[in-house]
Structures are given as C-alpha cells and as structure tokens.
Design a protein around this nucleic acid. Structure first.
Lengths: 343, 343
DNA sequence: CCTCCAGCCTTGACCGATCCAAGGCAGCAT
DNA sequence: ATGCTGCCTTGGATCGGTCAAGGCTGGAGG
C-alpha cells in the first residue's frame, strides 16, 4: 500500500499516504482539504480520489497542535438534582451537541463540583483542551464569567449576566418574564381571574424575572396580585405546602409556577384534596419537562426554545472564535406555551 | 520571563519554559510529570517548583500526537424522546463524566442519527479523536458493537450483546429480570395476588428479560400469569390503553411495568377511573426517572445503579486501554427498588 | 590507577498536520 | 528567443510534547 516501513498496518492513513497515492506533495493534499480553491480542478479531483480511496481524515491531534485549536467546546455539567423536574440542562445538551456538530465542533463534558463553580475550567484552559466554554449556571452570579473574562478565555453564557449588567461577554437567554406573561394571559383568556404565583425566593434573579411576567399580565387586565404570590424553595414539597396555603387563604382558581417542580407540588395538593387539575383548578409550570408531558392529565408548561438557544450559542461561539474575533451582543429568545390538560 | 522571542505573552507555558526555569532539559521535565521516580528528589522538587510557578500543564494536542491517544471517550447521544419518562441516558452521562474524570478521561459527546447507529463513530475513529467508545443503545441488536469490533476499536457496551451471545467485547449491564422480580415480590409481599405485567413488544430483548423477572416471581409463589400480561409500544398512551383492558378483563390489583413511561399510562387510567394509586391499585415502574420521583403520590420504581455501571464501564475501559490490553468480562449489576406512594 | 557500572540527566529524532517562502512551469508580451 | 507575470507546487520549519539512545558523574572492584 505504499506505506512507510514500520507503520502498523491498521494505523489510519496520513496526509503523506494520500500525497504519495495522488502523486502530489503533502501541502497540496492539505490545500485540497482546507483551501480547495487553490488547486487546479483536475489535481483536486485526483487528490479527492486518493482521500476517498484511503478513507483519510486529518489527525486531530496534529491539526490541533499546529493550529492551536481543538474544535472542542467545554460544557460543565453539575450533578443532576434528584426529586426535581429540571430537564433544561439535558435538553440543552442534546441541542448543543447537534448544533455544534454542524459548525464543526464537538462538545466536551466535564464534571462540576456544585460548591466550586470554577473547578475544571482552569485545567482545560491551561492544557488547551478546549477552544471555548459554554457557561450555563449564571444564576449563581456567574463567577465563572468574570473569571473567564480575566483569563481572556472565549465563552458564551446561556443566561444573562444578572449580577453584573456591565458585563460585555456574549450571552443567550430566554425571556422568562415573557413566558410567565404568556402563561398568565393564557389562563386569564380562559376566564380565570384569581391567578396565583408560586416562585423562588427573592434572591433568585431568574425567579423575580419570571414573577414579573405574572404580575405584568395581571396588572395589564387590572387584576390584583396582592396575597396571591408565594416564594419558596424549588422543591415539590415546597410547592405542595405553598399551594395549600394559597388555596386556603386566597382562593385562586389557577396557579402559575416558576418551575415544573413547583407545579408538581400544586398537583400533589390538588390530588390530596380531591380536586381535578384543569377542571377545578388550572396549573401551569415552567420548563416543559418530561414530567409535564407525561403526568396525568398533562401539565401546561412554558417551553424554552432550547434548540434556538443552542443555535444562537454556537453562532456566538463562531464569531468569537473567528478571525478576527467579533463581539456578539446578548440575545433574548421568546418561549412558547405547551398547553395540556392542566389548563 | 525568559520566553522565546515571538511568543505571545499570554500563551500558556510550555515544557521548554519550565525546563529553562528549572535549569534542566525538556525530557527531565517530562519525566517529572510522567515518571517522577526517575528523578533525584532534589531535582524533582526544583522542577515541581518551576511547574507550580508557571502554572504549567502539558499541552493536550502535543501529548496526544506523540502518544497516539486523546484521553477522550466518545459517547453517542441520540435525540431525547419527548413524551416519555426515559431518563437513564442522562443520569448515566453524569455518572460517566464523574467517574471517567477520576481515571483521567474526558467524555466527548457526539450526535447520533437514530436511523443510522453507525454515524459519527467512523469519523471520530479515523481522525483519532477518541481513544474508545461507550456504546449504550445495544437494544438495537447493536450493529455498532459488531462494526467497532471489525475496526478493532476499543469500546465498552452498556447493555448485553443480546443478539449475539458469542460476542466477546466487554459489557456492563443491569439485571432487568432481577429488578422486575424485586418489584413483583415487593407487591406480593404486600398481599397482592393478581399482579399484571405491561411490557414491550416481543422483539425487545430487554423487554422479554424484564418480563421474565415478573413471571419468575409469580411462578415462585405458585400464582398464575395467564391473561395478566400485555406487550405494547413504549408510550404513555399504550400504557393507558393496556392497563384499561387489563383492568376490565383480568382484574389485577397491581401493575409492574417495563418502564416509567408505561407506568405513567397506568396512572392515567387510574386517574380517569377515580382510582387512587397505592390505595386501590398498586403500580411499579422501571428506571426511577424524575417523573417517578415527583408524580403524586410517588411512583415506586426499579432503580438502575448507574453510578456503579459507570464505574464498571470505566474500569473496563482502563483495562482495555492498558498495556497490554486486558480483556474484561461482562458485568451484571443488581438494581434496587425505590418504594413510593404508588405501592 | 584504571575499568566498569549504575544512576541521572541530556540529546536528537519523531508524531502528523499547517504555515511560510521559495521554486517550477505555463502562457503571454516584447 | 527572452523576460515576465501569475498560478500552482514544493521543501523545510514548526507546534509541544514523548521515545530511544547516548553522555556524564561518582563509587565499587580489580
């Protein structure tokens, strides 16, 4: 096969092998792959034939070494929370993998210690293992973003820089307020007047943002919100307790929740009291998790357009990693409402 | 800083930089990192000081090129199925990332076209982007396994080689029959006599395996199984319809299901008929998904020890990639039962 | 006093791609 | 026939590590 002596028979073909088979130099093969325009068409064809014959694909490590880029995007995943309905991360990962593949990137996962949001980033950066990061948990006041910026590491955030409006890094986010406005208006359109809110504690930027969508929708119809809101931990039992209190004290006919987890808490309360979701009391959640999709009678939920988020993230990454690197402003996307039996 | 001219100031330090600072050769630094035993202790300390001072970490690409290994493990993820309660993959991914980090590996995700189980593997292999694969969807009769074996690509399967008992590749799996036996016995212990089975269609090896656990438990107590089993698609509506038919025709007091998705279908039927899960009819699912954890009143479910699976997978990978490569036999792990309100 | 050897470190080549600058070879004008 | 332009091709250097083999040192042994 014209291989150099000493090569293991099963070793993948190299650029030199292709060059020899096609009767050209290595550089010509490289150009055929990276800058086909530079070649005369008949030469190009000959090289492409040889590439196809040998099943050649450039060695990643060699290319990475020379070009100082890995075509890998680092994504930190934290331990899945048991007992919640949070599925955002997983759906996002899928979308990101799909989208970044089209852009020629792969996704490298690394583990995240929830207590140390910076762990892992530094090592990958110093060993030039990834070209850029996608940062997801910006609700923590994103110390990663600040840190990555001082390190001049390219990254795109899924989530606004809540704690630092001056931040200039690219980000993509979903308009939670608009989503809850949508959910609330949906309920109001169906004749509900007393729509309650169950959200997260006040120190959550995202929670307050979503809540503002609910109160905005209520006010725009001249409806009161006083006494109709509750702010708790993001657990099923918190949602259960909060909804029980609200039902007793404020007599709402519908609930809008900051998460599917809380909405499931409401369903617990309803089931305990023999109330039927969607008939006696309407419930809307947030995230369109698998739970919302399969729980009887179906939980209406705000759905984040994670495919679009991933696409925008990859677009931002591409301009960030382009030559010259271009700044990408923040992007805010609109969620939709998946209507099911609970409303 | 003694950098060579032309270096960008912010470029990560290289082995040569460390060598210069420590006053030794590059090879000595390399040995300090990879074979500390070869160095005299005072030299080792000097080099380690220099490494710490500069914040040196070996360049991945360079190391990969020379050693012909990437320390990356490829994992193909398929599009998440909407409308089901399948969470195995995501929990497994988390565990795998955690475990492989400890072994010095990172996980590279790549997209999978559900119609072409081989897509993506070949490119990664030919471009030497990953050292090995973890194959997860062996229920398809795993053409990947066969194909990877002919390519002599190292891989470990999560899932037995159902279709090919002669296969010799390493695998790790969870004993689904034992899990369903556990679930069924749990119900029988609580006094149920007529325990129905809702599983997958007969061409599913996994489905038949799980079913055998149910029938084994029933037979071991001398109870009949005739007319108590139904085999359908893995959707909520299939589970709903199958359970309705079974309730009418066989009057079971409990259901064991091959998946949480099917179990949710049973819950739908119960809720439609005003029956309370756990009080009127018991239900057990399989996978311990988030759905099972949060749905009222809690769905008892068979839980796969995915952390242990990941650990075994990584162990198998390590021996596979070791020198010399060691064969790793199949490993079968026992699931547990997460008992909740539905039983 | 010389040889030998073990222990420790250094030297040079190499992995497989891309970048750079110089070399070849048309074709056209002079 | 010569010179020159423009396009394609070529060899060499390079990225940053690791492998294999060679060199230097000091102490033991003859």
């Amino acid at each position: 096969m014209g291989r150099m002596p000493g090569r293991v028979p099963s070793a993948p073909p190299t650029l030199a092998d292709v060059a020899e088979l096609a009767g050209v130099s290595r550089q010509t093969v490289s150009n055929a792959v990276n800058n086909p325009d530079l070649l005369r068409s008949d030469t190009l064809l000959r090289v492409q034939d040889a590439i196809a014959t040998l099943g050649y694909l450039p060695n990643r490590a060699a290319r990475n070494l020379r070009t100082r880029s890995s075509h890998l995007i680092g994504l930190r995943i934290t331990a899945a929370q048991e007992g919640t309905a949070n599925a955002t991360m997983d759906r996002f990962v899928h979308s990101l993998v799909d989208t970044s593949r089209e852009a020629g990137y792969h996704v490298l996962l690394f583990a995240g210690d929830p207590l140390d949001p910076l762990a892992g980033y530094d090592d990958l950066l110093r060993s030039t293992a990834v070209d850029a990061f996608v940062v997801t948990d910006t609700y923590l006041g994103n110390p990663q973003a600040a840190w990555l910026q001082t390190r001049r590491a390219p990254f795109v955030a899924f989530g606004r820089p809540w704690a630092d409006p001056e931040a200039t890094h690219p980000w993509v986010d979903v308009d939670g307020a608009a989503g809850c406005d949508l959910a609330t208006s949906h309920l109001l359109d169906r004749g509900h007047q007393r729509v309650a809110w169950i959200g997260w504690r006040k120190d959550s930027f995202i929670g307050e943002d979503r809540r503002s969508g609910w109160s905005r929708a209520m006010r725009s119809r001249g409806l009161p919100t006083t006494g109709l809101a509750s702010r708790v931990e993001d657990t099923v039992s918190s949602g259960r307790e909060a909804s029980a209190v609200l039902l007793d004290e404020a007599h709402p006919s519908a609930f809008v929740c900051a998460s599917d987890t809380l909405a499931m808490g409401v369903l617990h309360t309803l089931s305990q009291r023999g109330l039927v979701p969607g008939r006696d009391v309407a419930v809307v959640g947030f995230d369109d998790s698998q739970v919302a999709q399969v729980v009887p009678p179906g939980l209406t939920s705000v759905r984040q357009p994670l495919e679009d988020v991933a696409a925008e993230v990859v677009t931002a990454l591409e301009s960030l990693l382009g030559h010259p690197p271009a700044a990408h402003p923040g992007v805010l996307l609109e969620p939709t409402l998946a209507v099911r039996g609970s409303s």
